[in-house]
């Protein structure tokens, strides 16, 4: 086995993990602050991909970049509607009700997407500058994967600045740690919840828009991503954004190396990695906020 193959495989894995992180970061943020298990997160991701497709097709060849900007914003608006219209009424209810409501949204979005966009396969081409590949350590690394890697880092840095440098971020962290205390201190948690849900939705939409040029945009892509995103959230420690970053990278790299060493088990790798980590650290890699 060549060392270069090992290295390139690791690099590809990290880029896969970074995309996962963008989606999972929103999910874990909502989990941590709102304490809502948002099954519809995958639907928002799917919506982001379909919207990116539509915006890009509408604008023509130069439509890619506007699509990356507009699609997540529209998804953020939809998220605001979901939070104000539905979720805020069930924050105090038990988890089962929350799961039922968000799962109901999954079904609604699944049908809605089929009604609006139909059932045919859809695809969005990467912009000319990001098409093709660069050769790194003898491996053909798609340029677009490198772009995704860079965006993932930007999102991580942006989230760090938000959580540690802004007042809202500090309230978010405080709410995640001790909600009652924040309420007692007179912070209007309702607004914080809305803001966090919108941010989470924007991240899901961004993830969907970003991944659109690498996959087939179909109804059903919501289910695939939500399972992996939940794995990331659980492995990383519930509600912990840095845990999500670390576990996304571990899952991405682990799956990629798994394909190299034990290809026969490729299907089981994510779950295998999750099981091993959870056996060693049942509460997840980093401190759970719950």
């Amino acid at each position: 086995m060549h060392l270069t193959l090992l290295a390139s495989q690791f690099l590809i894995g990290l880029s896969v993990g970074m995309t996962l992180f963008v989606v999972a970061a929103g999910l874990t943020l909502i989990f941590g602050v709102l304490r809502v298990i948002n099954f519809a997160h995958g639907s928002l991701y799917m919506l982001g991909a379909f919207l990116a497709y539509s915006v890009a097709s509408f604008l023509g060849p130069a439509g890619f970049w506007p699509a990356m900007l507009i699609a997540p914003l529209v998804v953020a608006l939809v998220s605001l509607g979901i939070e104000r219209g539905l979720l805020r009424f069930i924050y105090d209810r038990e988890h089962l009700i929350q799961i039922l409501v968000t799962y109901g949204l999954v079904l609604v979005f699944s049908d809605l997407v089929q009604i609006v966009w139909g059932t045919g396969f859809k695809s969005l081409a990467p912009p000319p500058g990001l098409a093709g590949y660069v050769t790194v350590w003898g491996a053909a690394l798609p340029r677009y994967n490198l772009f995704l890697f860079a965006v993932g880092i930007l999102v991580a840095v942006g989230l760090a600045l938000f959580l540690y440098r802004t007042r809202m971020g500090k309230i978010c962290r405080a709410t995640a740690t001790d909600r009652e205390m924040v309420d007692v201190l007179g912070v209007r948690s309702s607004r914080v919840f809305a803001a966090v849900f919108v941010l989470g939705g924007w991240l899901a939409g961004l993830g969907g828009a970003l991944v659109a040029p690498t996959v087939s945009i179909t109804p059903g892509m919501d289910v695939t991503i939500i399972i992996e995103a939940f794995l990331v959230v659980v492995i990383g420690g519930l509600g912990n954004v840095w845990g999500a970053l670390v576990s996304s990278l571990i899952l991405g790299a682990g799956e990629s190396l798994g394909v190299l060493f034990l290809p026969r088990l490729a299907v089981a790798w994510p779950f295998f990695i999750a099981a091993v980590i959870l056996i060693i650290k049942p509460s997840g890699l980093l401190k759970s906020v719950w």
Binding site: V16, A140, L141, P263, R264, A266
Partner: peptide, 22 residues
Amino acid sequence: LGTSWWPVGETNYTPYLNVIRA
């Protein structure tokens, strides 16, 4: 020379293709 099996609904084939390419 070898075999690869990926899950249905796989979203990133790059890791598999890299191994095959090598």
